[in-house]
Design a protein around this nucleic acid. Structure first.
Lengths: 210, 210
DNA sequence: GATTAAATGATATTTTTATCACAACAAAAG
DNA sequence: CTTTTGTTGTGATAAAAATATCATTTAATC
């Protein structure tokens, strides 16, 4: 019942709530959240009921409580430690991305096979790949970001899984197959752009939004 | 009937086909493609039927023809020109990302509001934001990548739409609302990681894959 | 050339996901 | 204290998506 799309909506509700809070909202109704997140109010309430989130009949939901509750569900009330393999362009961009830290996610260390990329002077150390296994165990890390070239991706994913990683966010443009008990979330930039281009071309032909 | 998920699968079939071609395959069956793309054979044939792609009964599909046909559908037989706003860390990583060019997508120019980021010595020029409108018109560009900080995202999206962009790939961590006739594809890195973390935590508790 | 085997393509079925509709309830008003 | 108003929470309903089924057709074999 609780699936990926549902959790993604939960994340969106959270963002929307933070914006509403910044605007001074103290309580919200399902309709407000629905508008802010681009769904229906029924959807919001249904999602909440799945997670046992309850509000006050006629009184809506308390913004602070709701944010707290969603963060709790998303596991964001404690710092989520992750690790990164591949300190190339995308890897480096992710290392410097500020959005993670404000969201309670901390990249503890980065790893690369290229000795030239290794450095410990930055905010996050870039270490040689040999130290990966030990590092992951020492910090009890379960989630890793994979940002290596496609040819290395499969091999590196096996290293990650071998070290005890059970969730991989994969930026390499190949579809990694999830081993038993390992969750893989593939982000394929080319596919995303291709997709967009298709619908833009399609709407140019038909003159309407696809 | 033809929706986002369907086009994404089409992209995946294309990647799979290219791999199969590299392995020497001349023809494939729906089952082969299904395995390679991680779906069922029925799904493959269903998708194909939506686009009028036909094969040979008992003979499967010719790999070259199939790739050609899919590329045609995805509009990839001609170079797809795109533009980028925001030459920060993520923007720069995208500029240097090789996967686009091999896939028939070319970032024609990048734009930034910060004069220090402007440079025309690279492979792709980074230009001041003032030149955006003219550039987009000159090159008849319809698709843009948005990689600016969240506070600027909405404003920049309006600049893009004002210049005639009808498809935006948004990396800013806010949910941009699609104006009439404008298609927006949001990639929210934090949401993706959050999602992964949720399912990893959930599977640790229950001991099974979420 | 007839027969057999195997994959397609169309249709039917199942499963999943989202929406609707309304009873239950709490706050506000009278 | 009673009535009205308006929102939640959820079971029922509808829509959409994925999967299974199977007749049809075609390549390969004999």
């Amino acid at each position: 019942m609780i699936n990926r799309k549902c959790i993604i909506r939960l994340s969106r509700y959270k963002s929307a709530l933070k914006r509403l809070k910044a605007l001074g909202f103290v309580k919200v109704f399902s309709g407000n959240l629905a508008d802010a997140a681009g769904v229906t109010s029924s959807q919001v309430r249904k999602d909440f009921s799945l997670f046992g989130i309850t509000g006050n009949r006629r009184g809506g939901y308390n913004v602070d409580e709701l944010i707290e509750r969603i963060q709790e569900i998303l596991g964001k009330n404690e710092l989520q430690k992750v690790v990164l393999i591949g300190a190339g362009h995308i890897g480096n961009a992710l290392l410097r991305y500020k959005g993670f830290e404000t969201g309670g996610i901390k990249i503890m260390g980065a790893f690369d096979i290229d000795p030239e990329k290794v450095r410990s002077d930055g905010e996050v150390p870039v270490l040689p790949l040999e130290e990966f296994h030990e590092f992951v165990h020492k910090h009890s890390i379960r989630v890793g970001i994979l940002a290596v070239p496609d040819v290395a991706a499969h091999h590196v994913s096996e290293i990650m899984i071998g070290a005890g990683i059970t969730g991989i966010l994969n930026f390499a443009p190949i579809q990694l197959r999830g081993a038993e008990g390992v969750i893989i979330n593939n982000i394929n930039l080319e596919v995303e752009l291709e997709n967009l281009i298709y619908f833009v071309n399609a709407s140019e032909k038909t003159g309407k939004k696809g």
